[in-house]
């Protein structure tokens, strides 16, 4: 099958993860993975981002498919149920807002900057080597640490489900995927009404 330029976006996703080990401020770039799918779904009413441009999905496809790191088994039924998908989306939202709240506390000088990356919302891993100061407020760095935690956590989860089930199992419960599908459904309903 003919390859397109967007079939290589996995390189960007991989680069993003690597850059976070050198300078945490690069984590801000991850916002693109949040805004682009949302803009596409709101403006065009499609899941164009998932379908074409998602570098993370491509990365899992490559590792699980071409590199053979996946068992390629069916995902359990409960993991593809709406309960789990919507529940995970809500949980993800809550944790995301908690991260924003912590950022706000640093911005308002109530809390000091914590140079840690929190994995799986639990394990605080020292990450001071990737912080070299910022000309801006420390809150900018706090957001970077928090956002990178979100990105790395979801990559780890996606990697585990890639190994256990099919390469792109993450796509089944990816909060961005669930959210954009909901937007598309709402848009379609609005148009039909």
């Amino acid at each position: 099958m003919k390859k397109h330029w967007y079939d290589y976006l996995w390189i960007l996703s991989l680069t993003y993860l690597v850059l976070g080990f050198f300078n945490i401020l690069f984590a801000w770039l991850g916002l693109l993975c949040f805004f682009i799918p949302l803009i596409i779904s709101v403006a065009k009413g499609t899941k164009g981002y998932c379908n074409r441009y998602c570098g993370r999905g491509q990365l899992f496809s490559l590792l699980g498919g071409n590199f053979g790191l996946s068992r390629k088994k069916d995902i359990p039924k409960w993991m593809k149920s709406k309960w789990f998908r919507y529940g995970f989306l809500i949980f993800f939202f809550i944790m995301f807002f908690q991260m924003l709240w912590n950022t706000w506390l640093v911005f308002s000088n109530v809390q000091d900057l914590k140079q840690v990356v929190t994995l799986l919302w639990t394990f605080k891993v020292p990450w001071h080597w990737a912080y070299h100061g910022t000309l801006l407020h420390p809150g900018v760095a706090q957001f970077a640490f928090g956002f990178y935690s979100v990105m790395l956590t979801s990559t780890i989860l996606g990697f585990f489900t890639m190994v256990l089930f099919k390469p792109r199992s993450w796509c089944v419960y990816c909060p961005m995927g669930t959210m954009t599908q909901l937007i598309c459904k709402a848009k379609q309903k609005g148009q039909a009404a």
Binding site: M1, C50, Q181
Partner: peptide
């Protein structure tokens, strides 16, 4: 009802027989 509209299927279809209908 269970499709997540990820689009993995259309990437591998040799006949371009699949489309993601309105992102749903």
């Amino acid at each position: 009802d269970d499709c997540v509209a990820c689009g993995c299927c259309l990437k591998v279809c040799p006949r371009n027989a699949i489309e993601i209908w309105h992102g749903i």
